[in-house]
Amino acid sequence: MRIGEAAAAAGTTPRALRLYEARGLLRPAPRTPAGQREYDPADVARVRVIRNMLALGLTLEDLRRRAHRLDLLVQDPAGSCDSRPGEFNGVVAERLAALDAEIARLTHLRQSLAAAAGRPEGDPATKTGRRRPAG
């Protein structure tokens, strides 16, 4: 199938397929004599796995470092990351640590902003962004 058909089947765009190929997540597609890329169902399945992993919060760089192992998830998508210790657990642990650090940073920033505004920590107006009624 050509790039537009493959992209539609995977729920993405031709531009995304080109990006995945450029980043080494997808093998370079064979070309027709006219120079058009041709994809097969295995490529579409791999793109679906890539998109699922990105939706979980992994980055293209995270996946690039494990691109050679993506076929394991294509073969067993239900098995996901934790069924094969060491396959993706390291990159998942790194991503979780990065998310935890960002949550801590934002929590601290929020507390500092609330303190600067003179609002107590438990003030509902601080949490929702709504102002308290004057009175």
Rank of each mutant, 00 (worst) to 15 (best):
R131Y: 02
P120R: 14
E94A: 15
I3N: 09
S83G: 02
G86M: 08
G135K: 06
I50W: 04
A7F: 02
G90F: 03
D123T: 10
A6W: 13
Y20R: 14
G86L: 09
T107K: 13
L99Y: 07
N89M: 10
P124H: 07
L26I: 04
A67P: 03
A34Y: 00
A101T: 09
V49L: 06
G90P: 01
A134M: 08
D82Q: 09
G86R: 03
R69C: 06
G129T: 07
D40V: 09
A7W: 02
L109R: 15
A67E: 05
R15Q: 13
A45R: 14
Q36Y: 15
G57P: 04
V74F: 07
R2M: 02
R2V: 02
A10D: 09
P85H: 05
T128K: 09
D40L: 06
R66D: 02
I50N: 12
G11M: 02
R66Q: 12
T12S: 08
A93P: 01
P28S: 07
L63A: 09
A22R: 15
L63W: 03
T107F: 00
A78H: 04
Y20S: 10
P41N: 03
G79V: 11
M53V: 05
R105L: 10
L96C: 07
A114F: 10
R2Y: 13
R64A: 15
S112E: 13
A6N: 10
A104D: 15
R15E: 12
R66G: 01
V49K: 05
G118E: 06
P77C: 03
E61G: 00
R2N: 15
S83R: 11
A114L: 10
E121Q: 11
V92P: 00
E38H: 06
D40T: 06
A67S: 15
L113A: 12
G11P: 14
M53K: 00
E121H: 10
P41L: 10
I3E: 12
E87F: 14
V91W: 01
E87D: 14
R64Q: 14
V74N: 03
H68M: 07
R46C: 03
A16S: 13
L17I: 07
L26Y: 01
T13H: 06
L19N: 11
A10P: 12
P41S: 14
S83Y: 01
A6E: 09
T107R: 15
Q111A: 15
Q75W: 01
I50A: 11
Q111R: 15
R110Q: 12
T13N: 04
R51A: 07
D123Q: 07
E5Y: 00
R65P: 01
V91D: 02
T13Q: 06
P85D: 08
R2W: 08
P124A: 04
L63H: 03
A7E: 09
E5A: 15
A6R: 08
D100L: 04
F88Q: 04
P33S: 09
G90A: 04
R15A: 12
R15N: 05
E102F: 00
G57D: 07
I103D: 05
R69F: 06
G35K: 05
A117F: 08
P30N: 01
V44R: 03
A125T: 10
R119W: 13
R84Q: 11
L26C: 05
D71F: 05
L17Y: 00
V49S: 04
R18D: 01
